[in-house]
Write a protein that binds this DNA or RNA. Structure first.
Lengths: 142, 142
DNA sequence: AAAATTGCTTGCATATTGAAAGTAAGTTTT
DNA sequence: AAAACTTACTTTCAATATGCAAGCAATTTT
């Protein structure tokens, strides 16, 4: 990783890491679809190329946004798990969904409706906490 | 604008538009620094190349995230103004700032502190509304 | 033991980005 | 009214990133 940051603005610096077409898609698929393995990602709707996927997973590991694990009973599969740092991106994902839902329908007629988005908007913070807690229950070992 | 969207997922579709290193930087500089002219953007900290800036402004105009105006007393300057659709991205910008502030300091030692971020976090919705209303007061003609 | 699966890497064509220079129209200065 | 300067771009070209397809080695399943 070479000179990573364009300037000292926090917003721009976040975009130096997650500002591309794929990084947040990968994280979204972890939070919302519980994707965990290389195969899970490479079979996703967005059809990410495996070389791009590979480079993004490496980058996310370097920034400790995800970590890489093995299950005790399988030496082949790698399991990618979001760290707290990665889970802290949940609000960004949710606000992107809300923005699309409310602003992109005229551009994208087949955009999927998001179930119960109104109730999510009414208490965004709790919804985000719930997503994070559920993710941890499913994926973090204690 | 060719085939614009990878799939029908709202999150991915938002990233098909704002998922790059520059688009949200431009919008951030409009909301937080009140950038309005081509020159304002090309002189920003991030030093965007003018060809990229030009292509992004065109794209944002096509999606009606911004509009282009003239001041009555100047035929040279173009003034770029966020529409409601563009202003609706404010939550995403704020989330990115909060994420950087809380999670990126170990990677980026000169990251700027954001004034009163604690109070922003305590009432994010009002802070966002305030930013949007202030922007409109400054830039929307009535 | 053979076949299939998983997690990648490699090669190559195409697209995007980035730096620098150029240009045309409008505005300011002299 | 000319000259100088400013603004808003476009163009050129090199460097980098993306995308597709194929390849491959280490498991795991049949």
């Amino acid at each position: 990783m070479q000179n990573q940051f364009r300037c000292s603005c926090p917003c721009t610096s976040a975009l130096d890491i997650v500002g591309d077409k794929w990084t947040l898609v990968i994280i979204k698929d972890m939070i919302l679809l519980n994707n965990r393995t290389f195969k899970d990602f490479s079979e996703s709707d967005e059809a990410i190329a495996t070389n791009i996927l590979s480079s993004r997973l490496k980058m996310l590991l370097e920034y400790e946004i995800i970590r890489k694990e093995k299950l005790p009973d399988n030496k082949q599969k790698n399991i990618y798990i979001l760290t707290q740092k990665g889970l802290n991106l949940t609000p960004v994902i949710i606000d992107l969904i809300i923005w699309s839902d409310g602003n992109l329908r005229e551009n994208h007629s087949t955009l999927l409706p998001t179930a119960q988005l109104d109730s999510v908007k009414n208490d965004k913070e709790s919804f985000i906490s719930m997503l994070i807690e559920n993710y941890k229950k499913r994926n973090w070992k204690r």
